[in-house]
């Protein structure tokens, strides 16, 4: 019974989701939305699980003086500081998002710059990954290098200045071979998703039932 009940729930829920996709009439029409709301509620509660895991693992690292424990300390201070700012704002302002509130101060002057910094690093990582990918060691890599050079030059104003052939070729590459490959992968993913969903609904795929 330990496995049969979850399998039955999965089968019935999967079937309901599929059937309600084709039936707009109430109460089936909004069933999918309702199940998503339930999912969001469960997700909200699991944030507590996440916080518990985060705090426990980092406090253990500090207690054991594991390598890099000061980072864990910074994380705990950051976590508690943000939480305190949030509670203070909630108690004193109309909304957590009130301009000038302490929570928005943390968000604007800590979180956004940190996010922007990480995102900016992508430029350097793209350069290093492109350098490795475009080394013309094999025929395929050489073709990739030439194609990438044409697309990159065709997408910037200087490309058209060199030759109108560059932007035209770049557009053709993006619209024909690139799009064909992308759609091929899309169709494969869509069919794979249908097959995987069927395996889950029929109870063949039970990895999630550990």
């Amino acid at each position: 019974m330990k496995k049969e009940i979850p399998l039955a729930i999965t089968f019935i829920t999967g079937l309901i989701i599929i059937v309600t996709f084709f039936i707009p009439h109430q109460p089936l029409g909004t069933m999918q939305q309702r199940l998503l709301i339930w999912y969001s509620i469960v997700l909200g509660f699991t944030m507590l699980l996440g916080m518990d895991s985060l705090l426990r693992s980092n406090l253990q690292r500090i207690a054991r003086r594991s390598p890099g424990w000061p980072f864990a300390l910074v994380l705990i201070i950051g976590f508690l500081g943000t939480l305190a700012a949030g509670i203070y704002t909630w108690a004193t302002s109309e909304s957590l998002l009130s301009l000038g509130s302490s929570f928005m101060y943390v968000y604007t002057y800590f979180i956004i710059p940190l996010q922007a910094t990480m995102f900016s690093l992508l430029a350097f990582f793209i350069a290093s990954a492109a350098y490795r990918a475009f080394r013309a060691r094999t025929l395929e890599a050489t073709l990739l290098l030439i194609t990438a050079a044409v697309v990159m030059l065709g997408r910037v104003p200087i490309g058209a200045e060199i030759s109108q052939w560059l932007p035209d070729s770049a557009s053709w590459i993006m619209e024909v071979p690139q799009m064909a490959a992308k759609r091929g992968i899309f169709i494969g993913v869509a069919l794979g998703t249908i097959a995987m969903s069927l395996r889950v609904i029929l109870g063949l795929e039970r990895t999630y039932l550990t």
Partner: peptide, 24 residues
């Protein structure tokens, strides 16, 4: 699909789309 080229460039092996779903 948008992240596949990055994985192909920086990883040793990449499961493309449906290969991933066929893993189990």
């Amino acid at each position: 699909i948008t992240q596949l080229p990055f994985f192909i460039a920086s990883c040793d092996y990449t499961l493309i789309g449906e290969e991933m779903l066929a893993a189990s």
